[in-house]
Design a binder for these strands. Structure first.
Lengths: 137, 137, 137, 137
DNA sequence: GTGGTCTAGACCACT
DNA sequence: GTGGTCTAGACCACA
């Protein structure tokens, strides 16, 4: 992990969305940015990629991106600089501690556990698969 | 893993839904039944709990349950027995092999891997948390 | 002021918007509802008028109303009941005390004071005009 | 009210803007100048502060100030004196009578009345608050 | 019927 | 160029 100079201009490639799921695109964007902030990959003062840039990169409508940005602004994670774009708010405190970041992952893991039990899968097999996926990246 | 006598009457408690998520309830029901079938916890010939029983147990609208049952019927996993309710279709091929069941879990684990990487979490920490959740159940 | 039975179905007429101003319609709706809640004219458990009803009554696009409702939901003042509509949240504590309600009015009055001073108007004249407007309603 | 010598150089401090509101800054500037003219605090022939001085004093973009000046010029309230900046037009009719100035304040007061009624506030309480704000300045 | 999401496209305010 | 607001209209999930 590199900790780049700050502030800097973020690229639209920080976002990745999947279609064909029921999770709304704007919500995927919101939650991705929350994780990137918690993980310290996005820092206070960073300039967000423009709405139009993200929209074109992801192939979605600009309003969809704008909605995500607006909600992140309402939440205090982004601030709007009129005519200049959005930037990451100063008070978004950056890299969270390990415990907090693990807590953000817990709901997803609990869901996995439920699914594994319905599939009658042993913990050992599940962990082996997760390990191979994590290491393979 | 226990393989119960067959046929038998399934209880509404085989289902569990979460609200406050964007995943539609009817879809949660469908995918749970698919997993229970793959895991062998639900067998061909088993009698499904009634729509109204499931609806009341989960606190959802009966039409939502009915929609899930109808789609499972259209898919051939359930058959409607007039006056008797739905039962699990004979051709639902029951307990799948380990590989197939793991494949059903893979998409969820891949999503976890993406989230972990955005959170800058080490594989070790993620695996430790999943292990504790799986063992704690 | 009448304190009606509760819960009840609110009419779209609780809202009034003005066009030709720079204040966005969705924001006018949000702030009106906040005031009606603080004033006790809208109570916890009340059913909000439907998006489509408000949109048609005010002659605006349903998405505009929907945006206001969504933000009020995010703020915790409204709760969504799937398939049934929105209702006023239980925790919106209804009629606020006199001090709090006056504070909601203060920014507008401070702006009036600035304008009056730029217009070189005596307090006496301003108060006389406000009095006549308030009493005339 | 003092009636200063004329002509003179106006300072950037005649303007005050608020951010975080939806009212555009250039419009705030335009309406403030209109009120200062109606109130007689700005007189025909007065030299306006320069665009760059106002922009720096208020912390806004010079183009925003320039836009306001241009619109005031198009409206005939300001005239451009090449190389010398803008000055207040001779035909700006100066200090209006009391009735006209009160009329400029009426829309704001009517809005206050609407908000007070939504907040279920008695005229007496509203007038008391306005009085304290006006006297406190 | 309810609200939610998304698209396509327009216009506005501001830099 | 930036984001914001609004419209018109489509489709979805849910009751």
């Amino acid at each position: 992990m590199t900790v780049p100079d700050n502030p800097r201009q973020l690229s639209a490639e920080i976002f990745r969305v999947v279609t064909g799921t029921s999770e709304p695109i704007y919500r995927q964007l919101i939650e991705q940015l929350r994780r990137l902030l918690a993980g310290g990959q996005v820092l206070a003062g960073d300039a967000m990629p423009s709405v139009r840039e993200v929209a074109s990169e992801l192939g979605v409508n600009p309003m969809t991106v704008s909605k995500a940005y607006s909600m992140l602004e309402a939440e205090g994670l982004l601030v709007r600089r009129r005519g200049l774009g959005m930037e990451v708010a100063a008070q978004s405190d950056g890299n969270s501690d390990l415990e907090s970041r693990l807590e953000l992952l817990r709901p997803g893991l609990e869901r996995i556990a439920v699914e594994a039990s319905q599939l009658e899968l042993e913990p050992k097999a599940v962990i082996a698969l997760l390990t191979s996926i994590l290491k393979g990246k």
